[in-house]
Amino acid sequence: MNGILKYSTEILPSLLQGTKLTLGLFVITLVLSLPIGALVSLGLRSRFKPLQWLLNFYVWLMRGTPLLLQLIFIFYGLPVLHIYFERFSAAIFAFVLNYAAYFAEIFRGGFQSVDKGQFEAARVLRLTYPQTIRKIVLPQVTKIVLPSVGNEVINLVKDSSLVYVIGLGDLLRAGNIAMTRDVTLVPLLMVGAIYLALTALFTFLLRKVEQHYSYYR
């Protein structure tokens, strides 16, 4: 038992190093894909048909193919066309493209469930369209989409382990290296525990945000 404890403290720094990369990818992806997703969802509702088609195609493509394939395509496939990405940028690029598409679909549903009467009420009060979106629609959409967005946030924590395939040193890779080197299950159990701790933390934070929006019905 003491041996396991000692071994755990020995490999913990490398696992935390991996956690840092996992979290970095997580935060950057969220910060970029949420606003892009919101913009895309507005575009999906655009009356300018070509834009709508283009964005629908993008969402279909991103949701219809595995994220793993997109990751491999961007990092290993695009160099064939002389487009080169550094590992981490490739990961960010793939994740943001993919998650923005999912968020766009969630927001599109959110926009649809805001009563059309709200737009008319804003219109007869002579609010401009941007004012209506910012002050009336977005706050209501935020409340509506929070549970679904929270789901994707938890997925993102776990999906981040896919960067393993392009050789990034994330949490899963750190654990895997230690396991093959030392022939023990302990690193994988620790990796699992860290993922669980992360998802528990984000679940808790998301609950808090949902509570914040529960002041009205």
Binding site: G117, V124, Q140, K143
Partner: peptide
């Protein structure tokens, strides 16, 4: 401002 409207279902902003 010219014309104000009171809707049948009021349409207050819930948030």
């Amino acid at each position: 401002a010219l014309i104000g409207v009171v809707f049948q279902d009021f349409r207050l902003f819930p948030h």
